[in-house]
Write a protein that binds this DNA or RNA. Structure first.
Lengths: 143, 143
DNA sequence: TTCATAATTGCAACATTGGTGCAATTATCA
DNA sequence: TGATAATTGCACCAATGTTGCAATTATGAA
């Protein structure tokens, strides 16, 4: 999905291609991993853009509702990623780090079965493994 | 896991078996599905118990840290369940309903592989499918 | 290019929830 | 039956989700 077709998509929904929206699309399509709203604000600040918090909030809602980004809530924080960038994650309960993890995807087939059996339209899924990363293990796992 | 052995477990950690803690253990072990802190407070109110919000908050943290309950954050809200009650879920983006879904669990094997390959100690995982339930589909899916 | 219109934005709120310090209360065990 | 350490309620603060409204701006039609 290139940027021009995304813009076309946005305009087709009655949306406008504004400076911030363009920048958000750029950030999210280039990043290749999850990013939180707070980190997006930091990112934009470094590019000398200072949109209001509620603007970015509404922007991310807009992009989510239009399927341009996927919202994924991990450990209470909302993260955003592009659909084709979907991964599963290892979430460390010690240092709160989040890392991508590769899995042979049986989930595609399961997803279809579950959707059919439950008459449920599945838009996306999230799979996270919670625990302790190598460097946090000594501090948290007391055997 | 019966209640007496849980109490024993709690006492072994230096914890005390208080009225509220007993009731929380009862609720969570009997419920068989996820419950949020807010719903727990409502539940307790109906039993004429009115603990402070921060008490329940700390209580759930205590029970989570001691492995008596598992915390699972879905769509920004923390839910709690007992470990042996673990399920995957269908989360409706329309009405926010959460329903359990059955899956043949290949995840046990995958979990071991991932833990080993990443030197990551996995405590638990969560798998949620997001989309629209049957009754929300007409309102939200516009083809 | 100009202009009307509707989308977007910033601001100022409020709500909800996570989280903590401290003094009062209470379960536990010697 | 105390002593003591765990638990509780209360009063906060912080972060984030969320909204109404007036000002600003992108867009398409003229």
């Amino acid at each position: 999905m290139n940027k021009e077709s995304l813009y076309k998509n946005i305009r087709a929904q009655g949306g406008r291609v504004t400076k911030i929206r363009r920048e958000l699309v750029r950030i999210l399509t280039n990043l290749g991993c999850l990013i939180s709203q707070a980190d997006i604000l930091i990112y934009l600040k470094e590019k000398n853009m200072f949109p209001n918090r509620s603007t970015v909030y509404r922007e991310l809602r807009f992009l989510s509702e239009n399927g341009i980004v996927i919202k994924n809530t991990i450990a209470g924080v909302n993260y955003y990623e592009t659909p084709h960038d979907h991964h599963h994650h290892l979430v460390c309960l010690g240092c709160n780090s989040i890392n991508k993890v590769e899995m042979p995807s049986h989930l595609g087939y399961q997803e279809k079965r579950i959707a059919k059996e439950n008459k449920f339209y599945i838009r996306n899924h999230s799979l996270e493994f919670y625990g302790y990363c190598f460097s946090c293990q000594p501090r948290f796992i007391t055997i």
